[in-house]
């Protein structure tokens, strides 16, 4: 049996693919798109969401029996806002440059629908341990998409990964550039994030026909 029962493992692995928060549940799109021009920003954003959703789910789950249902939205917002302030201050202290790049999008984790969505759908009805796993799973599913999008946009847009040139030097014309390859600057513009996510959805649904929607 071990630490995780089969059901618990499913809580983590499901959101990674077949019940992915971004491509299937359509939650948390805003931040997913705006900050993915660089891989590093995507990774930091995923970790921030992982922290906020994991801890937030546990806190809400612990309080689920004492929150009056009428004011639960406000209580949940306060929980998230507190956690996001912690993330924001930590980022400002240890990664100032990056926190400038992310700018308002760290604050927007508060209204990231993934978080409220998981609180409402899961943490309010389940114990702390299962809620924690659910939070981690969903945040990881969100992170996977963010990292895929960030990977392709940085690679095709500026020819680098995490700021390190991997395709050669575009000015000196070394590596791939020596045979006439050019960076596609278009990938760095925000609309391309939407199109890349659209393509991910296309690939995913072609592989798994059960996910296809009718009109």
């Amino acid at each position: 049996m071990g630490l995780l029962s089969k059901k618990d493992t499913k809580l983590i692995t499901d959101p990674l693919a077949d019940n992915n928060p971004i491509t299937i549940q359509v939650l948390g799109i805003c931040s997913a798109l705006a900050i993915t021009a660089e891989l590093e920003a995507s990774i930091v954003m995923s970790i921030s969401v992982l922290f906020v959703l994991g801890v937030g789910n546990v806190v809400v789950s612990l309080m689920r029996n004492i929150i009056p249902s009428k004011i639960r939205i406000i209580v949940q917002l306060i929980v998230v806002a507190t956690l996001v302030i912690i993330v924001d201050l930590v980022l400002k202290a240890f990664a100032y440059e990056l926190s400038k790049t992310l700018s308002v999008f760290v604050g927007l984790i508060i209204t990231n629908c993934i978080i409220m969505g998981r609180f409402e759908a899961f943490a309010l009805g389940n114990g702390p341990w299962r809620s924690f796993l659910d939070g981690i799973g969903n945040a990881a599913g969100y992170g996977v998409i963010l990292i895929i999008v960030g990977f392709f946009r940085e690679l095709l847009g500026s020819g680098t990964l995490l700021g390190i040139p991997v395709l050669g030097d575009p000015i000196e014309k070394t590596g791939l550039y020596s045979i006439g390859y050019e960076n596609n600057g278009f990938m760095l513009l925000s609309p391309m994030a939407l199109i890349v996510v659209g393509i991910i959805i296309w690939v995913q649904r072609t592989r798994n026909k059960a996910l296809v929607e009718d009109h």
Binding site: I201, W202, V203, H215
Partner: peptide, 28 residues
């Protein structure tokens, strides 16, 4: 778009994303 023949895997969410992307390029 309901009346158009969209590839099945793109129906619904996928095509909406791509259309929004194209509209965003237009707005640029």
């Amino acid at each position: 778009i309901r009346y158009s023949n969209v590839p099945p895997a793109l129906r619904g969410l996928g095509i909406t994303f791509i259309i929004t992307g194209l509209m965003a390029i237009g707005f640029m």
